[in-house]
Amino acid sequence: MWPRLNSDLCHCLSSIIKLNFVVVYIIMKKASIIFLIISLVTSCVRNNSDITQPTVTNGNLVLQVGYQFDNTALLFDTIMFTNAASYKISVTRLQYYLSGFSFKRADGTSLPYAGVFYFDAKDSKFGQITFVNLPAGNYTGLSFNLGLDSSINKTDNLPPTAENNNMVWPVQMGGGYHFMKMEGLFIDTGSVFGYAMHLGKAPNLVSISLSNKNFAIGAETANLNIKMNVAEWYKNPAIYDFDKDGNFSMGSDTAMAKLKNNGVDVFN
């Protein structure tokens, strides 16, 4: 009997436990549904209420660089521009680095942004920079270098991209990288000659500061357009004359120093 009673008891207990589980399951399921409905309702209420959205703390900025020759858009490979030394010139190549960015905030503080950015005026793939995760707010200007400061401008220091490899400044001539290669043709006394305004070496880093460049960083990506006025390389503060100063700058510290000084105002 005992076994039989025991078996019945066990069966009875088992049934009770199963029933309990079923009840608990149903309660849980209902609770889940109720919770889901409450969540949806509160969610809808919240969306329709005047509760303030989370403050945007960071955003992106796209800096686009355009090119002009004084007041004319730069057209490559055509001898059509007249520089300050009265030479008719063309531009066949314009490649350079920008680095050392710093953004001026409306409150007067500055925000440095590390990075080296290669530009090729003939290749739209290398025509803009996207600065990411800038603090939200209003900005009034920016500063940057054309070239690489001495902490960066070391032989084989940049990643070995095809572009960087093409900008190498040989060790035999001081090492590092070209800051800029600007080449083209010019007419002198009726004949066509070439020029190669190459800039490099630590003393020739061009520091550029642009004020009154207002932009706001927020949820939407901000855009800022600046332009390089190529004519400025040849005229301010000193006129650069291919005949007198040389149509090849790379081997001449004097010629590069003149370009460096003129380069301060090439962007606007």
């Binding site: 490899n165 060790v171 001539m173 081997g251 001449s252």
Partner: peptide, 24 residues
């Protein structure tokens, strides 16, 4: 590797290391 003004042949501008070509 030196430019002509420094007594070189200025080969490196087109034939740059490591491919020894600028592919231009």
């Amino acid at each position: 590797m030196n430019d002509v003004q420094n007594g070189g042949a200025d080969c490196f501008h087109c034939h740059n290391y490591p491919l020894w070509t600028d592919n231009a």
